[in-house]
Design a protein around this nucleic acid. Sequence first.
DNA 1: CGTCGTGCTATTGTTTTAGTAGCAAACTAA
DNA 2: TTAGTTTGCTACTAAAACAATAGCACGACG
Lengths: 122, 122
Amino acid sequence: MNNDDKNVKIAKVGQKVRGSKTGQPIMILFDLLGRRWAMGIIWNLSAQNCTFRELQARCDSLSPTVLNTRLKELRAANLVEKAEHGYGLTAEGIKLFKMLEPLGDWSYGWTDMLTVENSSKK
Amino acid sequence: MNNDDKNVKIAKVGQKVRGSKTGQPIMILFDLLGRRWAMGIIWNLSAQNCTFRELQARCDSLSPTVLNTRLKELRAANLVEKAEHGYGLTAEGIKLFKMLEPLGDWSYGWTDMLTVENSSKK
DNA sequence: CGTCGTGCTATTGTTTTAGTAGCAAACTAA
DNA sequence: TTAGTTTGCTACTAAAACAATAGCACGACG
């Protein structure tokens, strides 16, 4: 079961990340989070633990291929783990979420601003 | 010059995002930031304004195709704008960066933990 | 005039993601 | 026991995103 995880590409410090060759921690993190649905999965799991299919439903029916890939990556990154009821965030995952949390409120004002801009200009 | 921006796909509130059909602001944001180098560009611009090529160099020589696409998206999202010296963050972009900033410190501990884990668990 | 740096497009090939189907294992109830 | 569900996940194919490289139009400078 853990053998699969060996194939998951999570960069180590100093190693090349997909695009980034500097290997700075922040870039490794951005590389991981900058994959489709990575942050969405963390966001949804923060609300409550989910089974594979629940998570899939919450993430707008994303394909199981991608969900499984993301889960492997996030588990390899020690942000997500198998829990009682499906999957859940690890302690580190919760810490990360706490830092992302403010984005939730901010995003409302941000999208409002975009809407106003788009409708007012010309 | 602004005509190009019309083709940039940034979801409006309530609209479908690439994968997400819920159209929640936070998912729109995650969709935008969850594209390659989006957060890396914001991170680099927070340090100082950069010309197109400087930014390219800082972002590990990412292809101009992608850089230009990201810049269009981020400008459409009102997070990045043309500044005196190349490109820079908007006021909103700076706010966003302030929220991402804690990730920088945290990521060091996080990658350390991963390294220890990987080397200790056979 | 040449030549330099800038922002950017075009082209081609590779990688990622989407979309769908379906299977093996665990559980449920008859 | 056996049939039906649910769960986690793999296989396959097509579409989209991205990488890599070349190079062009423009303005500044000599």
